[in-house]
């Protein structure tokens, strides 16, 4: 850039320069890998809490009742800490680069989503105190909704806010794939039912897959950032 005064016939070039500068600043502010790393580690830490905090009562007919109490206590606190850590990490990195940061709305959204899971759990609990359990299987949309309000679904929803803040197309593609995985593919709410897996292992396996996916994505974004 030079300090020349511009003439009226080059607005297109000037706008292109403005857009290029804005894009460069946004790219310099990104710490996508750090957010994914923190969320991946938090997901993996939740596995033993869920494993040991789960109450399982299996009956002679092979059916089991379970209550994932460990998750209920772990995730709200863990999410608040995780999003606080992400915000601090972003803030420090941006400051070191000589920039402000736009991560705060993401961190706040993420922290707010932590109340969704216990609130949904409480709502279901109160509902079934005065209503009978349905005889048939849950409709598919209720399954998906159940998975959405769980912590892994909320991680995806909050990531959409980060996509918007960072105007990050790569993160949008990842988030779309991630949400499809946790909402439509992996049995996050009832676990894998396999004779080779115990009940707790069936619950842990989808969480392990989600944690590994987040960590792999963190590695991918870190590598792409270094290349840039």
């Amino acid at each position: 850039m030079t300090s020349d005064s511009i003439s009226a016939d080059d607005p297109r070039r000037l706008l292109a320069e403005v857009r290029a500068l804005a894009h460069r600043v946004r790219a310099d502010q990104r710490m996508t890998w750090a957010a994914l790393l923190v969320l991946g580690v938090t997901t993996l830490l939740a596995i033993p809490v869920d494993w040991f905090g789960m109450r399982v009562d299996c009956h002679s007919d092979g059916s089991c009742e379970f209550a994932r109490n460990g998750m209920l206590y772990f995730w709200p606190a863990a999410m608040v800490l995780a999003y606080a850590a992400i915000a601090v990490w972003y803030f420090r990195a941006a400051r070191a680069r000589g920039l402000g940061t736009r991560v705060l709305p993401y961190a706040i959204t993420g922290a707010v989503t932590t109340v969704v899971f216990p609130a949904a759990w409480l709502a279901v609990f109160l509902y079934f105190r005065s209503h009978p359990y349905p005889d048939g299987p849950m409709p598919y949309w209720q399954f998906v909704l159940d998975r959405l309000v769980m912590p892994w679904g909320m991680i995806g929803v909050a990531l959409l806010v980060l996509v918007w803040l960072e105007r990050n197309l790569a993160l949008l593609l990842f988030t779309a794939g991630y949400l499809a995985l946790v909402l439509l593919v992996l049995p996050m709410n009832d676990g894998f039912a396999s004779p080779h897996l115990g009940f707790r292992a069936g619950m842990a396996l989808p969480q392990l897959i989600v944690g590994v996916v987040l960590l792999l994505a963190a590695a991918g974004f870190a590598r792409a950032g270094r290349r840039r």
Binding site: T2, R24, V25, G98, G100, R102
Partner: peptide
Amino acid sequence: VHQRVRLGILTIAHEARRVEFGYLRTQLDL
């Protein structure tokens, strides 16, 4: 505002929320 460098400064400051002198100098090559 209608001056290339000053428009660049405003653009970067807007996107960054807050920007340090050294970052501006590097990006605008001044």
